[in-house]
Simulated assay, not measured.
Amino acid sequence: MKPLPNQTNTSKLAIPSNKKGLAAIGKYKYGLLFASPWIIGLLVFYAIPLFSSIYFSFTSYSILQPGEFVGFQNYQELMRDSLFWKSVYNTIYFAVLYVPLSIIFGVALAMMLNMKVKGMAIYRTIFFLPTLVPHVALAVLWMWLLNPGFGLVNGLLNMIGIEGPSWLGSEVWSKPSLIMMSLWGIGQAIVIYLAGLGDIPEDYYDAAEVDGANWFQRTFHITLPLLTPVIFFNLVMGIIGAFQQFTLPYALTQGKGTPANSLTFYVMYLYDNGFKFFKMGYASAMAWILFVIIMALTALVFITSKRWVHYQGK
Rank of each mutant, 00 (worst) to 15 (best):
P201W: 03
Y250D: 14
Q312W: 05
I103W: 06
P16M: 14
F84Q: 10
L252M: 10
Y269A: 03
L22D: 15
T125R: 03
L97G: 12
L141D: 03
N74S: 08
F246R: 11
A195G: 08
I239S: 02
W215H: 04
P100V: 01
I200V: 06
Q217Y: 02
A195C: 07
K27N: 14
A208Y: 01
S82E: 15
Y282Q: 11
I289K: 04
G161W: 06
V191S: 06
S102W: 08
N9K: 13
H135M: 13
L33Y: 15
W167C: 00
I289L: 08
S57C: 07
G196N: 02
V99W: 06
F105Q: 06
P37G: 12
W38P: 02
T264K: 13
I186T: 02
G164V: 03
Y311M: 00
S262H: 08
S177T: 04
I179M: 07
I104F: 13
I192A: 03
P249T: 10
F94M: 11
L290W: 04
S174N: 07
I231R: 00
A137S: 09
L64G: 07
I25M: 15
M295Q: 05
A283Q: 07
T10V: 15
V140M: 11
A195L: 08
W85C: 03
G281T: 04
I162R: 00
L300A: 07
L178N: 09
L50P: 09
G281N: 06
Q76P: 07
A283H: 08
N214K: 01
P259H: 10
M237T: 12
R80Q: 14
G196M: 03
S87T: 12
W85Q: 09
V153N: 01
N154P: 00
K314D: 11
F45D: 13
Y266A: 04
P225E: 01
N261A: 12
L168M: 05
G71K: 00
Y61G: 03
A14D: 15
S170N: 01
W288N: 03
G274P: 08
I240M: 11
G169R: 02
S182H: 03
I294L: 02
A24M: 14
A207D: 08
L178A: 05
W142I: 01
G255S: 04
K276E: 15
L132Q: 05
S62V: 05
K27Y: 15
Y61H: 10
G313E: 02
E209N: 05
G255K: 03
F150R: 04
M237R: 02
A242N: 08
N154K: 00
S36N: 10
L64N: 11
L156K: 01
A137R: 03
A24W: 15
F265C: 06
L43Q: 09
P3L: 15
R80C: 11
Q188D: 13
L101E: 11
